[in-house]
Design a protein around this nucleic acid. Structure first.
Lengths: 113, 113
DNA sequence: TCCATAATTCGTTTATACCCGAATTATCGA
DNA sequence: TCGATAATTCGGGTATAAACGAATTATGGA
């Protein structure tokens, strides 16, 4: 990932509703959630949500598939990984002690026991 | 970190010049870089840069200290860690296989050999 | 085929972000 | 104290983002 794409991804997440949608989908996993259910959950009008979903999709952070009358959205974990990777890239050349706390991020990222 | 603060941080980074500034400072480490030198490096007017620096500072992503006539800016690694932590929080409850690629982020984050 | 549901697209209005020039504040050296 | 350098603050003009209502497209079932 390069800077312009990173700006697109960050802009997509830099909005309260869109960030909430993204987190919802990240938690939901591969099953995903239908657009209408997301709208209901967050209390956003369907048309407004639709434009948010388009923005997140264009940024490579979510995917969609049609299932009957519904469209199911799910997180794009590879896009997420690309963004995080860009942010930490070369974060501490020559200074591993700065880097160390970032390595512990993975600890937030575990299955509940 | 909670959602509103995360939106602030993401908004701060969701701009080509500000993201470039942040990356510059992340690479620069604790020594930091003077405002004027950042402006020269990126080809941004000093007053415009100043407002960008204010936004990044308010978002908790950079710090500043005065040194004579210069003001030295440096990355706030704790703020950075907080944002990344928020983004990956609970990212794969019950699905460790999704989580695994995120754990490898640390590999971008190493000292040059 | 027709109707109901799900989602998106379109057009408009409003609010906010961005950038620049000019003026101001802070610090250092002569 | 005065001038020069470094940085920030202020004000205004322009562009862009966001939200909404209305209309449109897609799908499934009667």
């Amino acid at each position: 990932m390069r800077l312009p794409e990173a700006v697109d991804s960050l802009s997509a997440l830099a909005h309260a509703h869109r960030l909430a949608v993204f987190r919802l989908l990240v938690r939901a996993g591969a099953d995903g959630i239908a657009a209408g259910e997301i709208a209901r959950e967050l209390g956003v009008l369907p048309n407004t949500l639709s434009s948010h979903l388009t923005i997140l999709g264009h940024a490579g952070l979510i995917r969609s598939r049609r299932d009957g009358r519904s469209v199911i959205y799910s997180a794009d974990y590879e896009g997420m990984r690309a963004l995080l990777g860009f942010l930490v890239a070369d974060c501490c050349a020559g200074r591993p002690e700065i880097c160390a706390p970032m390595l512990e991020l993975g600890q937030s990222c575990r299955a509940p026991e």
